[in-house]
């Protein structure tokens, strides 16, 4: 377990010190969301109706930007080879790195989402739900993303390929994330969507590292 925490700590330190990935994701999130009212016009009712959808889609795209660095940087400087010889099974290596990605990208994006909700005239009652769903839903974004990142690790400019692989996998998270936030769902609808969203995240936390580790094993050959 000591190795797991050492790796997690190092990845979070690197992300904070290098700063670029978090800054780019947050900046992209801000820009995409603030473009929407400009494109759709100042119709406040329309904006508040589609706010949840826009926030979730923008959040997924913003998270996508930083995914490719999960393994690529470690592969380039040889760190991944050494990590593979460590006492930690590769599945836990990928789990630690996905978790670090969630801490450094998922949580900042989830915290920023309500701030951007103001730009879209999101219903006040929906703010706590928005924070809760984005926090619960973003682990799926990081852990599914790690699979794509592992598959495209050695691909030159694999960013686009990564998006093609990963975005379809995000569909369930997107659907239930939006339906939990949408005001029309009502209390029962909210609970159901929220629980399914949590279930999706839990499943990906278990299965994502296995799939990512399998992909890495092929690449290490």
């Amino acid at each position: 377990m000591k190795s797991f925490w050492a790796l997690l700590h190092r990845d979070v330190t690197l992300a904070i010190r290098e700063g670029g990935a978090i800054g780019t994701a947050l900046g992209f999130f801000l820009v995409v969301v603030s473009l929407m009212p400009l494109g759709l016009g100042p119709d406040l009712n329309l904006l508040s109706r589609i706010a949840a959808g826009i926030l979730w889609i923008a959040l997924l795209l913003a998270a996508l930007l930083s995914l490719n660095r999960i393994f690529e940087a470690d592969h380039e400087d040889g760190t991944l080879d050494v990590l593979a010889t460590g006492p930690l099974p590769l599945e836990l290596v990928t789990a630690a790195k996905s978790l670090a990605h969630w801490v450094t990208t998922g949580i900042p994006l989830a915290i920023m989402a309500p701030v951007l909700g103001i730009l879209l005239n999101l219903d006040l009652a929906a703010y706590p739900i928005l924070v809760a769903t984005t926090l619960v839903g973003t682990p799926a974004v990081s852990f599914l993303g790690a699979i794509g990142a592992a598959l495209t690790m050695k691909t030159r400019r694999g960013g686009l390929l990564l998006a093609l692989i990963v975005l379809p996998l995000y569909v369930p998270t997107l659907i239930f994330g939006i339906s939990a936030v949408s005001a029309g769902a009502g209390p029962t609808g909210l609970a159901a969507s929220f629980l399914i969203l949590a279930a999706i995240s839990l499943v990906t936390i278990v299965l994502g590292p296995l799939a990512a580790a399998a992909a890495l094993k092929v690449h290490l050959q």
Partner: peptide, 22 residues
């Protein structure tokens, strides 16, 4: 390759491998 992280200090690099490799 050296498996060295450029934005960590020399001691942090060595310290990380020490704790990761137990």
């Amino acid at each position: 390759t050296n498996a060295v992280k450029l934005s960590l200090s020399v001691a942090e690099n060595a310290g990380f491998w020490n704790s990761y490799l137990d």
